[in-house]
Amino acid sequence: MERPAFLIVNEIPPVCEIFLKILKQSECSFQTVETLSDALQLVKEKGFDVFVCIVRKDVVLTPEAEKTLEESGFLFWVWLGPLKFDSPRFDIRWPLELCRDEGRLEAIVKNFCRLAERLKRQKEMASLLLHDLRTPLQNLNSYVELLSQNIFGELNKGQQKIISNILLQSELAEELLQEITDIFRFKRRMFELPKERVNLTLLLNQVIRSLWGMADRKNIKLQTAIQQNLPEVQINVTAIKRVLFNLIMNAIKFTPQNGTIRIQARLLNKTPRSVLVQVIDSGPGIPDEHIPRIFNKYFRLEQSREQFKGSGLGLYIARTLIEAHQGRISAYNNREGGSTFYFTLPIE
């Protein structure tokens, strides 16, 4: 694996010299520029892993600049400068006052190098694993398609319906693999989703029907309360299907045997108008202190680590896709037990 590459905007040479000394010792590659404009030009020509700003005063990040930097695939962004600068784009913010202690600064930069190396290794391993997953999934699709064509004998209506659901799920899994691959590569273009006007009631019912078998294995009842005559929404169908599958499958996973899951949808008339979709389970609920973090990448509750397999990416992907629709997604615990996950979609 190649060592991490740092792109550094250097406005404070004494601090930068210490930074570069540690990078050399860690065998990390780097390139320094004097201005943000120079950095924006350079990332169009070369690839880097970490973006660092060592500055005396705030910088102005225009939407165009943010987009250029975001699409460059940095593992993380570092800000060494005035702490009053409060851009959410920077993952690590460190005050200049603490940079005057050379020993402390050296320790910080060494940690940056270790973090960059670990994240880069994870990113490359994830790309390889995702690539290797495609072959068995494609083979599975081929076998199911042969069954659907009655190659091995006539299927009855019930069998045809199950085969259709398997094909639907397989196609969704292939698309999801591509989505996750793009997320690991930190590509923003995936969130520029083509949209169309869709009957949300039909979409909800389609997803719920396809998950009936999974719920039935635990004798869980899937109940619906969908407001009549919901207006059409402008959405990317594949993306919203992924969100629904993720939330409902999570609810099935955490709801005990003989439990109930309720899927609701209704119109919110407050300005701007939107549709509210809720998935209400009868599971154990979520510790209150973890609710703000459950949509973070790789976050998993301790009990879910012990009981269920998973990467901790599902809710992160759901949040990303809903936010790409200018919607909102969140969760809360119910008074009577269990939890409610909900999202909104604007009506355009």
Rank of each mutant, 00 (worst) to 15 (best):
A5Q: 10
G153W: 10
Q303E: 12
R100Y: 15
V52Q: 07
N199P: 09
R118T: 08
N10K: 12
Q41P: 05
E2G: 10
R273H: 10
L268N: 14
T32G: 03
L204V: 04
L193H: 05
A331E: 04
R262H: 12
L268Y: 13
L321W: 02
E27I: 11
L105Y: 03
I347C: 06
R300A: 01
W77Y: 14
G103R: 07
G153K: 07
L211H: 07
N165S: 13
Q257R: 11
M1K: 07
L105P: 09
K309Q: 15
I294N: 08
D101T: 07
D288M: 11
L115R: 12
V60K: 15
D38I: 02
A318W: 00
G73Y: 08
V59H: 04
R118E: 12
I162G: 01
A5N: 04
E232N: 05
W79F: 08
L98F: 06
I235H: 03
I166Y: 03
V237G: 04
L129H: 01
Q228V: 11
C113M: 01
P272I: 04
W212G: 06
P284V: 00
K123I: 02
Q257C: 05
H290P: 03
N333L: 09
P95G: 08
G310A: 11
S282W: 09
A65R: 03
R185H: 07
E71R: 14
A324P: 07
V275Y: 09
P231V: 01
M249E: 15
L146S: 13
C28F: 03
G285D: 07
E336S: 08
V43I: 14
Y143C: 02
A239I: 02
L313I: 08
P63I: 00
R273Y: 03
E348H: 13
Q138H: 13
T255M: 01
